[in-house]
């Protein structure tokens, strides 16, 4: 079984805590792509997303000692970046009332603010130049709620055994232990099954 992102991050973070300077640099290398997709999935433009990702790393430098469980470092970073993205966006532009709480019930005020720009809308060219499979899938993804689009985007850049913890850090706990499909992916699969253009047989035994 190959190491997941959480596994690799834990190893780097333990090295950092033990005083190995390169441990932190390696941690930045390993987790920055995931944090980018967290920030962008929260509706930030590219510049604000870059800012928020850097702020997340600066926060970790300061708070590293307070993280009791090194294995939780990815969850901590995802949570920190998600919340900071929410604050950044609230400052960036006023939030309209009808953007709020439009989806499932929330437990945390920071979760109530997933707005309609959560996924960047690509230009027609960017989609058109992709293959048929990507185009079909993308059309269905855009029918999902913003929260589901954000969750699936981040999960897509994670490793399967980490899905439950990362979902929780995104404020969308899947409510079960282990890598189950979850409601967002289940909805997407149901939509794809009704689409003749999506060929599940094409998959074969691969994957």
């Amino acid at each position: 079984m190959s190491a997941t992102l959480t596994d690799r991050a834990e190893v780097c973070f333990r090295r950092h805590l033990a005083g190995d300077r390169s441990g932190f640099d390696d941690l930045v290398e390993v987790v920055t792509p995931l944090l980018w997709h967290v920030a962008r999935s929260q509706g930030l433009d590219r510049q604000l997303a870059e800012d928020v990702v850097q702020r997340g790393w600066l926060a970790l430098v300061r708070k590293a000692e307070s993280i009791n469980e090194p294995r939780a470092v990815v969850s901590w970073l995802v949570t920190t970046v998600r919340r900071d993205a929410w604050r950044a966006r609230r400052r960036d532009r006023p939030v309209r009332g009808d953007d709020l709480g439009a989806t499932i019930g929330q437990v945390d005020p920071a979760d109530t603010d997933w707005v309609a720009t959560a996924t960047p809308t690509p230009g027609p060219d960017a989609v058109a130049e992709m293959d048929e499979e990507a185009r079909v899938l993308w059309a269905h993804v855009q029918e999902l709620s913003e929260r589901c689009q954000a969750l699936l985007r981040v999960i897509a850049f994670s490793d399967r055994p980490d899905y439950a913890t990362i979902s929780e850090a995104l404020g969308m706990p899947v409510g079960s232990i282990g890598p189950t499909r979850g409601r967002c992916l289940a909805k997407l699969r149901a939509a794809l099954e009704h689409d003749d253009q999506w060929d599940f047989e094409l998959l074969g035994g691969a994957g």
Partner: peptide, 20 residues
Amino acid sequence: EPSGAGDPLDTGDRRVLADL
């Protein structure tokens, strides 16, 4: 909860996520 939400991930899910 849509049906199948509690199912384990299968190869179809992995393909969807890899595409995403």
